[in-house]
Design a protein around this nucleic acid. Structure first.
Lengths: 125, 125
DNA sequence: CTTTCATTTGAATAGTTGCTCATATATTTC
DNA sequence: GAAATATATGAGCAACTATTCAAATGAAAG
């Protein structure tokens, strides 16, 4: 959070091998070791980082839907949709319920969509 | 936003090929056609969806840093770091300034980190 | 029981990606 | 100018991923 001025922090004139600003590295290293699991956020973003899955989440934000409807909506095969829904379900982003032969999917919770919307706002600047 | 009850919306008894709930699909399709570019969010998330890049952003959130310091901090080669910084810069997530031989990177804006933090909160539930 | 249909699943494939290695560029110092 | 150093860059490679295709489930209907 505190932005240090670089010009005054060069305490190691010539880097031994790769490190130049020893104090900065130590400070940042200490701050980063506190909550390690922030890095697991990458796994969540990896799931968001696919056009098909974003479209699916967005569709389900509007309404609960069955697999074949989503396939029609996105103009993709049922198999492809089913594969992606499996990934979304494993990540606990969607849930499903069965009604006869038809399986209906919906968002696991509303909070998920807030992350998408905020990212959307960021892009529009 | 409005969750419709599925059981009462089956207006097409037998699906022609793949579509079952015509009205739902039409409604969702209409809602999704409004702001197309929400789907471009996937590109932003694709960048967030990498452990190394998340760690870099997190480090730069603490302090401006040069390439070799980041390489030392993350225990990776300078080349690998440089490649990732290039991706982050193309996405306008970081900026850099040159001072002699050394190139210092920093976050392009603070808003970026808010998205990460919110995702982090979501994971912790 | 057989057929039909919605969905799932696994293997195969084409495309993408993150890293490494070698090399190039740019700047300082001698 | 030559050597040293910080960074950037491009090719190559191994690992991963999204889709397709074929086949398997599982439930309803005849």
């Amino acid at each position: 959070m505190v932005r240090t001025k670089m010009g005054s922090n060069i305490d190691v004139e010539i880097c031994e091998q790769t490190i130049i600003h020893k104090d900065v590295v130590q400070k940042v290293s200490k701050a980063m070791s506190n909550d390690e699991d922030l890095e697991n956020v990458a796994d969540l973003f990896k799931i968001f980082g696919d056009r098909t899955r974003i479209r699916l989440l967005r569709a389900l934000y509007q309404s609960e839907m069955c697999v074949c409807d989503m396939a029609y909506l996105l103009d993709m095969t049922q198999s492809a949709i089913s594969h992606q829904l499996r990934i979304l379900k494993q990540a606990k982003l969607v849930k499903n319920r069965k009604e006869g032969k038809v399986v209906y999917y919906s968002l696991a919770d509303q909070h998920v969509m807030q992350i998408l919307v905020q990212a959307y706002d960021h892009i529009k600047e």
